[in-house]
């Protein structure tokens, strides 16, 4: 049996997509390498270092120098970079000076915490933002749509720092929810528990609210364009119920701009949010990165930056792949 023109077309399309994804993958590897290297150089070049910070003001210069020597921080940057590269090639990312643990052990622990928070927030934002966007985009006026649009604009204009503080304030005043941390002391240290879910509410809402607003706005704008297109008007003219046209036919087209940013949002969220994690004491990558920066823990800074870039690359790849599948023109 010979392959027909349709099969050949599918093969060519698949080939293009595969090549496109491989190209993006190569770029992702380069991105991670570049971000890690640059962050190492920047962290090394920043004023002060770990011994200066940890020994504090008034420490004797000889004590600081002795500590630098013990930690190997007195070597030239080039030598430290070469060593780091050689070790990184063997998946040894150095030892955190602050936590006295291998960076390769610390990052996954915190990344899991960030992932739990990020994915919860993403799920909540998607489940709330998209339907609301479809709803407001498919209606020209009306009080409910106007109220949703207004709320979205307010939430979009609020930085996560403010959202977090506001939610923490509400939680403190009402006493309904734990304000900070990931688990109560004494609660099981692993697994999904009621305690964990309770602790998740405030930080995930802080992340999810502006995201939901963004999804709502993107979906609404796309829907507003789509509902005026001929295929939608034709369906309506044929007597197909409006709800069915909107939620089945128009929705697919309306999702395209959301899909375009979805991967990036995933990548950014997985990289950790400084503001939300610090205010809600969520032990994720964002708070780890901040602690590492403050302590001038060079290898931990590099590890966090590298992990962030991996997530960003993953998100970009996800976005690109999704778009390439939806719209083959992208991969050309």
């Amino acid at each position: 049996m010979t392959s027909g023109p349709a099969e050949a077309g599918h093969y060519i399309l698949g080939h293009y997509i595969l090549r496109y994804i491989l190209r993006r993958l190569a770029f992702a590897v380069f991105l991670v390498f570049a971000v890690s290297s640059v962050s190492l150089v920047l962290a090394w070049s920043a004023p002060g270092d770990y011994p200066t910070e940890s020994l504090g003001i008034g420490a004797r210069p000889e004590t600081i120098e002795q500590t630098r020597e013990r930690l190997g921080l007195n070597r030239p940057l080039g030598e430290q970079y070469r060593d780091w590269l050689a070790r990184a090639a063997r998946l040894d990312f150095g030892r955190s000076l602050l936590y006295d643990r291998p960076v390769g052990d610390l990052i996954p622990e915190r990344a899991v915490n960030t992932a739990v928070l990020a994915l919860t927030a993403l799920l909540a934002a998607t489940l709330v933002g998209l339907p609301l966007g479809v709803f407001t985009g498919s209606r020209r006026g009306g009080v409910p749509a106007g109220a949703i649009r207004g709320a979205s604009l307010v939430l979009l204009s609020m930085p996560p720092l403010l959202t977090s503080l506001l939610l923490v304030f509400v939680a403190a005043r009402t006493g309904w929810l734990p304000i900070g941390g990931m688990r109560s002391p004494g609660a099981p240290a692993g697994g999904i528990t009621i305690d964990l879910l309770q602790h998740l509410i405030v930080p995930s809402l802080a992340l999810a609210l502006p995201l939901a607003a963004m999804f709502e706005r993107l979906a609404a704008q796309a829907m507003a364009e789509v509902v005026g297109q001929p295929f939608v008007l034709a369906a309506l003219a044929r007597g197909v119920p409006r709800r069915r046209v909107v939620w089945r036919d128009a929705l697919k087209a309306g999702l395209r701009p959301v899909a375009a940013v979805y991967g990036l949002v995933v990548g950014t969220l997985l990289g950790g949010s400084f503001a939300v994690e610090i205010i809600t004491a969520w032990p994720g990558l964002g708070s780890l990165m901040l602690a590492a920066l403050q302590a001038r823990d060079v290898y931990l800074v590099v590890g966090c930056a590298g992990a962030g870039s991996i997530f960003l690359a993953f998100g970009t790849l996800l976005s690109d792949a999704a778009l390439a599948l939806v719209d083959p023109r992208v991969s050309e």
Binding site: L165, V168, A172, R173, I179, G180, I278, A281, S287
Partner: peptide, 15 residues
């Protein structure tokens, strides 16, 4: 408890 933010720390004490 390790609470990096002073505002959150105050709110938790109040609560």
């Amino acid at each position: 408890e390790i609470i990096p933010d002073q505002n959150a720390e105050t709110l938790r004490l109040e609560a």
